[in-house]
Amino acid sequence: MEFLKATNIVKQFANHLALDKVDITVPEKSIFGLLGPNGAGKTTLIRIINQITAPDSGSILINGQALKSEDVHRIGYLPEERGLYKKMKVGEQALYLVQLKGIKKQDALRKLKYWFEKFEIQGWWDKKVEELSKGMAQKIQFITTILHEPQLLIFDEPFSGFDPINANLVKQEILNLRDKGATIIFSTHNMSSVEELCDHIALINVGKNILDGSIHDIRNKYKADTYQVIYRGDSTRLKDALHNRVSFSEEPVSGDETKVYLKKLNGSSTRELIEIMNPLVDIVSFNEVVPNMNDIFIRAVEETKTQDKAQ
């Protein structure tokens, strides 16, 4: 069941088309990666979902209902360009931001207390924001984004400015939130965290959706029948035995092991390959190469570029 469905979103700015008929479907209670190079239109799409700007055409449904202005209370948004009032005290400010999300003062205080304790930052309540480090301020922003327990959370580069320990803390919280039933849209350029966290992704480039689906499907789709094999033994005989079945490329490694990449040429099965190899060399490992998100990202974006040129 999808939680958010954006259909045919078009947004035209004076000099360029920021979004050109973009569709995304965010499944319920999952983490959805919204990816794309700089200037692809991610922020514009996120702002449209947050009703900061309105699309020129297209529709957005939340739980099957058209997006309406009260829905801002159901959304928590941590923008990439984020900050706090420097001269305001931390507690006062957190309270203000949370109240703007429609939480009553008493509830807000109680919940803030809980989260401040959880993140071990009770001592900051009366400090001014300008006294905090960037990472500290990021924690406050994270708390104020999730405090009203929104059904939809949108994180734009949530880990920037965090040290590895705190980044991990936040990552755990994001996973917790999903497990508790929140739907999360996660936008980042850090592909390893996409692999770690996301269930589904959409890749946007120059205002168009060029790739979407579950991470698993996408990675399988980008598989190229390539296997990484590490073995000990004589490479020449192996090459001769396999030469019409696979293309062979060797990668240097230290020690007596050899690492090669085999790309199947004519539909040989993996079993056949292993049967041929096994008597000849001592196989250490045999893995199918599944492309990582970084490669997929680059390939997908490059492909659309060459397509654009061809047209």
């Binding site: 947050n50 900061i52 202005s69 801002v72 959304i75 948004y77 941590l78 923008p79 360009e81 984020r82 900050g83 706090l84 009032y85 420097k86 931001l97 703007l100 999300k101 429609g102 922003q141 104020t144």
Partner: peptide, 18 residues
């Protein structure tokens, strides 16, 4: 200008209309 330069404005306009 303070709201803009401290980058808090986008956080706030996600809760209220500009």
């Amino acid at each position: 200008m303070e709201e803009k330069s401290s980058r808090i404005v986008e956080v706030i306009v996600s809760s209220v209309k500009p």
